[in-house]
Amino acid sequence: MRSSDAARLESEGLVAVAEADLAALVSPLDRAPAPDPIELRKHERITGRIHGSVPSLPSRFGQFFNDEASLGAALRERRAGLVDELDFVGDRAEMSVTLTWRAPREEPPAASIQTGRDFLEAKSSLGRERREAEDLVARFVDHLAVDQAITRRAICPREGVAAIVAVLIARDGAEALRKEIDTFEQRSSDVTARVYGPLPPYSFAS
């Protein structure tokens, strides 16, 4: 976030570490927190609160720096990229949509693939699924009538899932987007759509 926004958000044990015009809000800890549900929820809540207050780039859970100097050095080194991302995201939030195949693809279990032909045919099948998912996402983004630049997509990220698509929206644009997604889902014989958000822009922060 911008340094000018950081100081007023120092609460819940958070400390602002500034480097020129950029700042990070951190929790002073001896070691990286364990990835247990309580800590994960705490991170999500704090990140949501910060993003709800000021334009900011969320950090992934568990990022740990040995001291303020090393965090400052990281901010200095990555300044240009962070400023670009912050400018790009602006005052927008992320909506995340998981598109799940209605008819699950039947992939042979890896252990059952014993011959070279089986192996290449399985890869060929995965390639076809990937191409279908890419076409589907292109239709989905067209349907939403949003600029490609404000989307991020993971194609076939796991079994049964065609894609996860993240879209940047104005903070008051969530309901309108949900309606468009509902319409797409109703018309699609290929996938169902589950919507999450508005969220801090996790998919748009490196």
Binding site: T115, G116, R117, F119, L120, K123, G127
Partner: peptide, 26 residues
């Protein structure tokens, strides 16, 4: 792997080549 799949789909690999290349990649 992408090259091998493309060639298999294009029909330019013999059965023996598909088996040999597929096994090596696996």
């Amino acid at each position: 792997e992408r090259q091998a799949v493309r060639r298999m789909e294009g029909g330019t690999l013999s059965d023996e080549e598909i088996e040999r290349v597929g096994l090596a990649l696996m």
